[in-house]
Design a protein around this nucleic acid. Structure first.
Lengths: 346, 346
DNA sequence: TTGTAGGCGTTATCAA
DNA sequence: TTGATAACGCCTACAA
């Protein structure tokens, strides 16, 4: 009878109890491994053997209903289309799933369909389908998200909506973007452009523009609107926005791209306009995709460590769910400026 | 009282019944929108209003327990590390999540930790946490997976394990790989190499080598082991395996790469060896990543449509779950050979 | 057309 | 140290 993989007939704790000659409560006590009550070793062994013999696995719905915990965390992806073009989400998802599984949690992935709709996570929460959630790229004025945070619902944000009660893991890349700007300055660049990550109004995009401006000011330089165009995460959008930026006759000799993918589109635009890279145009990316080092020219960029971010977010949430004290309510990670070959002195 | 987003106090169907002046069964009937029984319009309205007023959402655990359905599908990722380096999974995940949500299903993502372990999906299945599952890159000799298929458990494979009872969506790229080989032949290449997707023994890898060999035979050409090296999905592995292939003195002038990412690493290897692209070396990728068109040189490749594959897999599974007849138990999709600029006549 | 009653499989609370 | 018993919240016959 060994080797039973999946049982066709439902076997319940009652069956195990019968075979082991104990009550259902005892079965539950033994199998959930609670240390609250002490149970005779012999009984434990009998129960476990019966469970294995019968191929018993506790029914999760029954367990959820009785215990009130789902052992599931929700992963809310604010812009699911980014899965198609951006490199940040997949490693994040990997890290979160890994940590969650290690702690006995499952991950339920939910993409938000569009801005106007009632956010799908409201349903997950109120139907008690998840114990808590991690929100990727949270939207700044999401009323429903704010309401959840205000009620102390277990939420960890990857990114920030600047709510006083939020719990967040974030990479404030001030230092690195500044470093990147200084680097370009030292190479002699005086007209620096920016192909933004997405349309203005998004918090990440606006933040980076602010930081770049600040860094340029230290060198008495500016970032006028004429030196910015707005892409939309993808290489294709980088090509379009890049072409616009480079044909504006603004004298730009170096460009900070919103992410590595956009940088690749931008490179294409530059080449299409007859520019040699990096001789005629210096380009800096953002993210450090695994392939950034291998493209031509190897991309100088800013590494944002999605793996580590995801891992920390998951740990934070699980700490909350298990009632452990938090290390910190706002974990700020360090990014890193990676110099490769896509920039050159003027 | 309107605008209640999430209720602190649990509100059950009993409360709704009380407020609406009906019984709990009526509440259930109305809210689950079953057409089995006809209910007076006025009653429906009263129930719905009461539900909204109280901020009632049915408890999913209760529902699962009573109905036996979880409205959740499991997405099993056989090699979760691929999330870090390969471009195929993210769009697949996107498509599956989208279709599932549209049909009222949630998606539970589960990565398989390693080969020796009991596959994690066994637990998902036997604890009745999911109604069915989609398996990405299924492993050829996974006994547990085979057992599930034999018991007619609802599983859709993306890829194949050659089980007579499997339900699968697959892209047999014979035609395109052959076309790619012919294309290189017409350009005058007579020594064609291959940087394989992964170590030999994997079904996708072996399949492609077979197809390439067959195509070459038509031209009286061969693919000896000296002209193959084995990468491991990533650009980095493509660099290493590419370097090995190109330094073997095998006279190779064109290479088929296991995927686009590997192709990018291979390009790096070629450049590092002083080769100009595409003049000194023709390269063909596989997948058509969104950025394949933008790198330098633009990558000639084979498009595998992960979006469409994911969508079909999800539809198939939902059809099964809802008891609809299947269009087909083995959906074969067409890939497409995309000519760009990474190949040149010798 | 609506209400009653029972059951789904587990955990938690007592009492023994 | 173990066992009864009562929730948990919903669905579904079946009866009215």
């Amino acid at each position: 009878m060994a080797g039973v993989l999946v049982n066709k007939h439902k076997v319940t704790s009652f069956d195990v109890a019968r075979v082991a000659g104990v009550s259902r409560s005892t079965v539950s006590l033994v199998l959930s491994g609670s240390n609250a009550v002490i149970i005779a070793e012999a009984t434990k062994v009998r129960v476990r053997e019966a469970a294995i013999q019968l191929g018993y696995t506790p029914n999760s719905a029954g367990r959820m209903l009785a215990s009130g915990a789902t052992k599931t965390i929700g992963l809310i992806i604010s812009n699911p289309e980014l899965l198609l073009v951006d490199g940040f989400i997949p490693p994040t998802l990997y890290a979160i799933t890994k940590v969650a599984n290690e702690h006995g949690y499952n991950v339920l992935t939910e993409g938000l369909p569009d801005l106007n709709n009632d956010s799908a996570f409201v349903d997950l929460v109120s139907s008690r389908r998840i114990d808590g959630m991690i929100v990727l790229n949270p939207r700044t004025h999401d009323r429903q998200l704010e309401a959840l945070i205000e009620r102390n619902y277990p939420v960890v944000l990857m990114g920030t909506i600047n709510h006083p009660k939020e719990i967040t893991v974030n990479i404030p890349t001030v230092a690195d973007l500044t470093q990147a700007v200084n680097y370009l300055y030292k190479l002699g660049h005086r007209k620096i452009g920016h192909v933004a990550l997405s349309a203005g109004g998004s918090s990440a995009t606006d933040y980076r523009i602010r930081v770049i401006r600040l860094a340029l000011q230290k060198h008495k330089l500016e970032l006028p609107e004429a030196c910015i165009t707005y892409a939309n995460f993808s290489a294709e959008s980088g090509l379009v926005a890049g072409r616009e930026l480079l044909t504006r006759n603004n004298g730009v000799t170096a460009v900070l791209a919103g992410n590595d993918t956009i940088a690749i589109g931008l490179m294409r635009a530059a080449r299409d306009l007859g520019k040699r890279l990096p001789e005629d145009m210096s380009i800096i990316g953002y993210d450090d995709l695994p392939l950034a080092a291998y493209i031509e020219p190897p991309l100088t960029t800013i590494r944002t460590e999605p793996l580590i971010q995801g891992e920390i977010a998951a740990r934070l949430l699980i700490d909350i769910l298990q009632g452990r004290p938090l290390v910190s309510r706002a974990v700020d990670l360090k990014s890193k400026f990676i110099v490769r070959g896509s920039c050159k002195a003027v």
